[in-house]
């Protein structure tokens, strides 16, 4: 199976690569539209700031490429937020795959949320074999609101979308590559999606 990690200079993709290698997959890091389009699975990672990331994607026309993908696509962390319609982070228009708003946490608790929090209301193939209330590792200051695309929630300040799904597009706010065995199972589940 060919797995491509979208390379758009958005933080540390090395961890995602290592996590996939632990699952026996050798991913290719690429910003080449043809390589991305022809992959069996596409992972859209990201650590960083939304407007800078969107600018980078647009400059390389990767925004259109990603939106048009037909194979299973998995957005992680900032990748999830960029797949939404709009982010409050520097008032950024995003890809709009999910018609969902990304907002900043009200500082009633410490922001960023940093650490392990549990997944609730998980549904669908991404969470096959994942027990209720399993913990995943978060580092984020912005969150996607819950919507019809929500396939898991987590509570921090308020309830937010821990994961989203629409057609072939999947996304997780937490870092599966750093979430122990639970994270590895989620990554494996994504690879197994038909």
């Amino acid at each position: 199976m060919s797995v491509v990690i979208v390379d758009y200079n958005a933080g540390n993709v090395q961890s995602v690569t290592y996590a996939l290698e632990r699952l026996g997959v050798s991913p290719v890091l690429s910003a080449d539209p043809e390589v991305i389009r022809s992959a069996d699975r596409v992972i859209f990672p990201g650590v960083g700031e939304a407007s800078t990331a969107m600018r980078f994607l647009k400059e390389r026309k990767l925004d259109e490429v990603i939106k048009d993908l037909k194979q299973p696509v998995f957005g992680v962390c900032l990748g999830l937020q960029l797949m939404c319609a709009h982010s409050e982070e520097n008032n950024t228009d995003c890809l709009g795959i999910f018609d969902v708003q990304v907002k900043k946490f009200e500082p009633t608790l410490k922001v960023p949320q940093m650490g392990w929090n549990n997944l609730e209301h998980t549904t669908g193939p991404l969470f096959k074999g994942i027990e209720a209330d399993s913990y995943v590792y978060y580092v984020h200051s912005y969150y996607a609101e819950t919507s019809e695309y929500t396939i898991a929630t987590t509570d921090y300040v308020n309830t937010f979308s821990a994961a989203l799904n629409k057609d072939n597009f999947y996304a997780l706010q937490a870092h599966p590559e750093k979430s122990g065995k639970v994270g590895e199972r989620i990554l494996q589940n994504f690879l197994d999606i038909k």
């Binding site: 961890s15 290592y18 632990r22 750093k178 122990g180």
Partner: peptide
Amino acid sequence: VAAEINIP
């Protein structure tokens, strides 16, 4: 460490 450990 990064290659083998699955926590931050």
